[in-house]
Every structure is written in C-alpha cells, then in structure tokens.
Write a protein that binds this DNA or RNA. Sequence first.
DNA 1: GTGGTCTAGACCACC
DNA 2: GTGGTCTAGACCACG
Lengths: 130, 130, 130, 130
Amino acid sequence: MFAFRMIDRSGVPAYLQLVDQVRRGLLLGHLQEGDQLPTVRAVASELVINPNTVAKAYRELEHAGLAAARAGQGTFVTGSIEQVPAATYARLSGRLRQWLADARGAGLAPEQVRAMVEAVMDDEQHRETA
Amino acid sequence: MFAFRMIDRSGVPAYLQLVDQVRRGLLLGHLQEGDQLPTVRAVASELVINPNTVAKAYRELEHAGLAAARAGQGTFVTGSIEQVPAATYARLSGRLRQWLADARGAGLAPEQVRAMVEAVMDDEQHRETA
Amino acid sequence: MFAFRMIDRSGVPAYLQLVDQVRRGLLLGHLQEGDQLPTVRAVASELVINPNTVAKAYRELEHAGLAAARAGQGTFVTGSIEQVPAATYARLSGRLRQWLADARGAGLAPEQVRAMVEAVMDDEQHRETA
Amino acid sequence: MFAFRMIDRSGVPAYLQLVDQVRRGLLLGHLQEGDQLPTVRAVASELVINPNTVAKAYRELEHAGLAAARAGQGTFVTGSIEQVPAATYARLSGRLRQWLADARGAGLAPEQVRAMVEAVMDDEQHRETA
DNA sequence: GTGGTCTAGACCACC
DNA sequence: GTGGTCTAGACCACG
C-alpha cells in the first residue's frame, strides 16, 4: 500500500503535500491505476494531522480525476499521468543518487545540498523562460 | 546587487520564498556579509508584490540574524552561514546541470524532472531520519 | 485568562506593548507555560486595534520562543523566563506601592511621578553601564 | 551643561526620547529657564544619531514653548513646568533608590526590576482610570 | 472558529 | 529616499 510521508514545515499546505505525493507517485510509476490509497483515518493517524485535511487532499485528487472514492471500500487511483519509462527512471534516479552521495561525501550539509539543487533547478527553469 | 527571482505558485508563501533565496545566496557564496539587499520598494515593484510582503521577508531575515535594516539606508546582510567551497560548488553544480540536461534529453517534462528530484531527495532524507 | 491593557500613546508601537505585557506576565509569574493567550480577534476587538497588529505581536513572541500558535486552536505560552519568587515580588511590589502612594500624597502629578521613576532608573542603569 | 543619554531600542522614537529628557529635566529641577541645551551637532555626534533627528527634537521643544533657539548662540530653555519641590524630590528619589538597591540585592535582574515597576505603575494608573 | 498570508494605502521616523 | 507601523479587508489552511 502506498504510504505518505511526514509533513514538514516548509510552508507548503499539508493537503497540497499529500496531493503532490500522489501525483509524484503516478509520474514515477510508484502508483498505478486501480491502486488503493490509504484510508483518510489511517493517513490522519499516521501523520498526526486532522482527517479533514486528508479528506481535502483526496477531494482535490478526485477533482483532478486522479482518484475516486468507492463507498465503503476506500479511495482508488483512477487516472494516470504520463509516466517516466522504468528504464529511464532507473538510470536517472541512480545517477542522481550518486550525485547526492557525492555531495554528502564532500561534506555538504543536507541544507546545503538542497540549496544547491534548488539554485540549479531555478536557474535552468529561468533560462528556459527567458 | 543581489536579485530575486519571480515568485512561483508552489504554495510556499511569497515572503518565505524570498527568505529562502537569501539563505541560499549565503550558503552558495553569492551573498556576503555587508552586501546590501535590494530595497523593499525595488523588490516589490520588480516582482509585482506588495511592499509589506517584502518587508515581512526582510524582518524574518533580521530575526534569523542574517540581515539588518538601517532606517533611511537600506537592508544589509549581517550574518553568514557555512558556505560551500567554490571548487566543490563548481564541480557539483556542473554535474547536476549535466544530469538535468540528460533528463531533459531523455524526454522528461520539467514536471517529471522535478518529481524525480523531489522523490529521490525525500527518500534520502527519510533514510537518514529513520 | 490573561488580559491585555489599553495601548498608550507613549510612542512605543502597539505590537511591542503587547509583547512587553506578555513578557512581563512571565517575569512576574502571572503567566505560565501552557496558558492560552486571548485570541487575536478577541484582543483586537477588546483594545480596538487591528487584528494584524495583534498577530504581529504574537508572531514576535513566537520568534522569541515564548509562545506558539496552533492553527484553529489559539496561541499558547510555550517558553518561560526566570521568574521573580512570589514572596520577593509581594514584598517589593508592596513597598513600591507605598512609595507611589506617598508620592501622590506629596502632591506630585502622575507625570511627575513617572518622570522621577524614569530619571532614577535611567540613572541607575547608566551607572552600571559606565 | 545638560547631557542627553544613550538612545535605547525601546521602540520610542529617538527624537521623542530627547524631548522627554528635557521635559523630565524641567519637572525635576535639573534644568532651569535660561539654561543652554547642547548644540545639535554636539548631541548628534555624542549619541551617534543624525543631526536632523536632534533638530526635530529641538523644534518640538520650541513648539511646546519649552526652548528657543537664539541665532548664532544656541538653544535655551525658555519655559518651565511645575517643578517638584527640591525637598520632596530628595526624599522620594532617595527612597526610590533604596527600593531599587533592595530589589537588586534580592537578586532581581534589571529586566525584572523594570518589569515590576512598569507592572505596578500600570496597575495604579489603571485603578485610577477605572 | 482559529491563526496565516497578502493587498492597498496612509502616515511616521530617520538619513 | 530608506525602512517601520498601522489600518481595512479579502482569502486560505486547519480543527
């Protein structure tokens, strides 16, 4: 069963973090059409957040056509997004992991690693836009 | 003079995005102690956001000891964070850029790239915490 | 529940006066860790000031580690400052009240009393610093 | 010659602190009609603030009828406020100093002393108003 | 209902 | 010109 991760304090609304995780799971093939999502109650108790917050995330997913609740059964993934081919994913994620390991090996703190990733990605994005 | 980037719609409050950009600038050595930050009004007009929002970000930086406002003069960087050595930065950011180029070359949409990066980083972070 | 006093026109920003009152409450034992502060809206309507001003004060307290806001629940005292022992407080505040009564009895206007207190305290403080 | 004290960061505008100190000096008899105030330049350099700020304070005093500038000579105290009789002042300030010494002797930090004084005075003032 | 963010715009203190 | 404070009011996230 798909599992959600801890809610951090990045400023991103909790319900959006849940939505993003499902979306990400679909993009990367960790979630398939038909898969069941954990129940609202389970997520709420696991992450220690209010069930309303989880419900809002699921509602958002339904609205996006990515999930649907089946009365008495739970919520299931219904839609799909263009997935990254498994081979491509394996290759790229492997290299990315190596890069991360290298960065950590060079003595960079997690905060510094994240800063660098964000800086470079923002930079690329900006270059495209410009 | 340091320049801020457009505010995205990721759900992260605008003022926090500004704070993060300064923090990142310090981590990566793009900002030094004593540097002047653009004036509140300049940032507000540049990014088309409310001056109060910028002021809030600057105040947050002040609380963190990273900047100080001088009435009638502007806001200046006062603190510093452990920086990434320039050589390390150059090497790692170069490789990261290559990775990004490769990912784009493999046909991944920006959204997919970002999802992969976030997934892998969250994963690593989770592994450390666990 | 803790209650705030009217904001005076001494030139001290309203939000700072609120912060000082909480700080003072902690120093003198009138506020304890875990106590709930009045809601932003309650204070704003009570003192006839803008909710944003109250929120700013509460945020300042949060930065100082003295309070924490819980969305949907309210703001609570979280930290503490070294308190004045109750007995010491009782004895000293009693004598101070007598002094004030005496000063008023001698015909001093409130403004004169305040001027004297400030002059003497500034004097002492200056002597220590020097 | 009358001397101004350091500007603190209490939130009270610098120019108001200067005005208050003159007013206080008059109330307590430390300043008499005809006394000369230090020049704008002297105060500005002594307290390391902008001459404009000092000039604004002096203008405020002129406006209140408490001081007047004589071209080429300086600024002089012209008005007066009801003073506290010297004997009363001596007696009361002496007792207040004793109280302060006692409070410090009881181990109270300056911050705690100030908090207590403010709490008691606010309390009295509130009682009168009510 | 709670606090949080953002906008728009006025006024003030300081350089 | 700079930043700082305050108001008024809208909208959002969370419980």
